[in-house]
Computed example of a mutant assay.
Amino acid sequence: MRHVREHTLDGTHGPVAVREWPHPAPRYLALVVHGYGEHAGRYEELAAVLTGHGAAVYGPDHVGHGRSGGERVRIEDFEDVVTDVHAVADLARAAHPGAPLVLVGHSMGGLIAARYAQRYGAELSALILSGPVIGAWELPGRLLALPEIPDTPVSPAALSRDPSVGAAYAADPLVWHGPMKRPTLEAFVRTLRAVEQGGDIGPLPLLWLHGDDDRLVPLSGSRTGVERLAGSRLTERIFAGARHEVFHETDRKEVFAELIRFLDRSLPR
């Protein structure tokens, strides 16, 4: 494992644990925004790719996730999570003044990153969304219509065609393996609507990565949200046969290469 620094910030709802994968002289900063039920520590390989490309990488665990405080997977308001992520950006910029900032959001983290770009887009140099919860995501509405949320955890097999990814996820004590919670589902619905109504991101470069066999966040639903969010500089790459976690897929070297090409085009020289 690469050297990792640990930080703790005062978040909107308690302590927020932050991982930093440092770089001695970074050309840019990358902020990784993880998905539902998981934590930033699952992005070690992505962080290695980004630090190898010249980035200092930071990844918070959201409230109720990983090593951060709060009731497990309970998020009352995603606007507060966006505020927490912005505090992590402030931490990174204080350490490396003037470095361009890139935001990478996966799944639920894609929703958070999209809202961040609407609120703080002028501070960003690029936005990357991987399997983002954006647009027409039907799961929250279906679950909220039930009298009781079923105890149906995320299937590890839905993450990647690489069985080791699902096995590691299932064995990870920092991953939530229980049911979704009603306040979090209600927050999803509100924030999906907020992003829909929040306008596009103008000239900010946006890279959208998605697997065409993503059964957790289907491609067709995300497309409507991405196309509404994107301004004038959208790059889309859909990976045949890939499931939900393209950064953990069997063809992830191709995914990482696409990411690096996008950053080389988008970052100031």
Rank of each mutant, 00 (worst) to 15 (best):
V189M: 10
A122S: 13
P24T: 02
G198M: 09
G199H: 12
E254H: 14
W176D: 01
L259G: 07
T51C: 13
I201W: 14
D10R: 15
P147T: 14
T8H: 15
V246Y: 00
R19E: 01
A17K: 10
G198W: 05
G54D: 06
P173G: 13
E249D: 00
R215D: 01
P97G: 02
A89M: 08
H34K: 01
I260P: 09
D10H: 10
V165N: 08
G109Q: 09
H86W: 01
R193M: 05
P15A: 06
L144A: 03
L129H: 07
G14P: 12
V4A: 01
T224M: 11
G98Y: 05
F188S: 03
T8K: 14
L50P: 02
P26C: 03
L185D: 02
A257R: 15
F188Q: 01
R119C: 00
D200N: 10
G221C: 11
I260H: 07
V154Q: 08
E79H: 00
S68D: 01
K181P: 05
L9A: 15
R269W: 15
W208D: 01
V63H: 04
H23N: 03
E186N: 13
R261P: 10
L216Q: 06
E45M: 09
L229W: 06
A171Y: 07
G64M: 05
L127V: 05
A89W: 10
L234I: 03
D61I: 04
D151Q: 02
H39S: 06
E45A: 09
L31D: 04
L174N: 06
I134H: 15
R2S: 11
A117W: 12
H7A: 14
P24D: 01
I260R: 12
L127F: 06
H244I: 00
A87M: 10
A48D: 11
G225I: 09
P132V: 10
A25Y: 03
S266V: 03
T8M: 13
A89T: 08
W176N: 01
A117Q: 13
E38H: 08
T250R: 15
E186P: 08
V175K: 05
A17Q: 11
H248D: 00
Q197H: 13
A113G: 15
K253W: 14
G54Y: 06
L234C: 04
G52E: 07
V63N: 00
V175A: 07
R261G: 13
A17H: 12
A117T: 12
S266I: 03
R93I: 07
A48V: 15
G109D: 09
I149Q: 02
H13C: 11
V102L: 05
T12K: 14
R223D: 14
W137D: 01
P173R: 14
H3D: 11
E71W: 14
A171P: 13
P24G: 00
I260G: 09
V85K: 04
V4D: 00
T184M: 12
A136L: 12
Y120H: 04
D61H: 05
R237C: 08
L29A: 09
E138V: 11
V217L: 11
D80H: 14
P173M: 12
L144M: 06
L159M: 02
Y28N: 07
G221D: 09
L263M: 14
Y169E: 11
P173T: 11
M108T: 02
A48Q: 15
Y116E: 06
A145N: 07
R237F: 13
H65C: 01
R237P: 05
H244Y: 00
P156K: 06
R93P: 02
P150Q: 10
R233Q: 02
L263W: 15
L29G: 09
E258R: 12
G70E: 09
